[in-house]
Amino acid sequence: MMKIYDYELSVNCYKQRLLLGILGVPYESIPVDFFPGWEHKGEAFAEINPLGHIPVIDDDGYILRDAQAILVYLALRYDPSGLWYPVTDPRVAGEVASWMAFAEGTTNTASAARLHDTLGYPFDIDTVRAGAQKLFRVLDDHVWFHEQQERPWVASAPHPTIADLALFPDVMLSEQGGISLLDYPALRRWTDRVKHIPGFTVMSGIFPAPAGAAPAGAAPGGATVGRPR
């Protein structure tokens, strides 16, 4: 069975659990003592990932690291619909790759602010918060323009892609790093749509959408996407 070297409070680990849950792929979570044990920085874990990062997956002996790379692999390997990483449309594939790279930026800023405020990581808090706000402004504008074109997701496909999942947790948990989502109304609407994707699962700090009607744009694509069974 697929194994994930995993930490409950890690946004990058959560992205993988989220996609696996949506795709209905069973997996075994191997808990890593990320905090307070720093196990991922230890010698034993260096055998698994010399960069000292999680997540890492072990899919029947195939080992892969890096949050965005794992999303790519999981989508291509386990989503027979091909919609979560739509490589047949060069423009959409390019957009997905672009927003996945953007997600590295939100990890280095919004996620860093959260690690500082919650676990005491020694980042310069003003710098990382300002960096996150700059990126969130770009993303909020982009999502707003897409909404005007009746495109509910970050890529221009009519269904969600791994780019949405790559960006979602950093946005959702940003308030724990002192970055309020009040300033980003389009992002709040978009996170609500993500929460209505069938198979959506939560992590600590993220709550499910309140019961009720799904927001416009969530159901049609999501309902058919990535449910091989």
Binding site: G37, T118, Q176, S204
Partner: peptide, 21 residues
């Protein structure tokens, strides 16, 4: 394992945190 016990506790406390804040 110790790690699994810590993970369970952090899962619970991580759910409380946004409520507290």
């Amino acid at each position: 394992s110790d790690t699994a016990l810590k993970r369970f506790q952090q899962l619970i406390f991580g759910q409380d945190k946004p409520i507290l804040e």
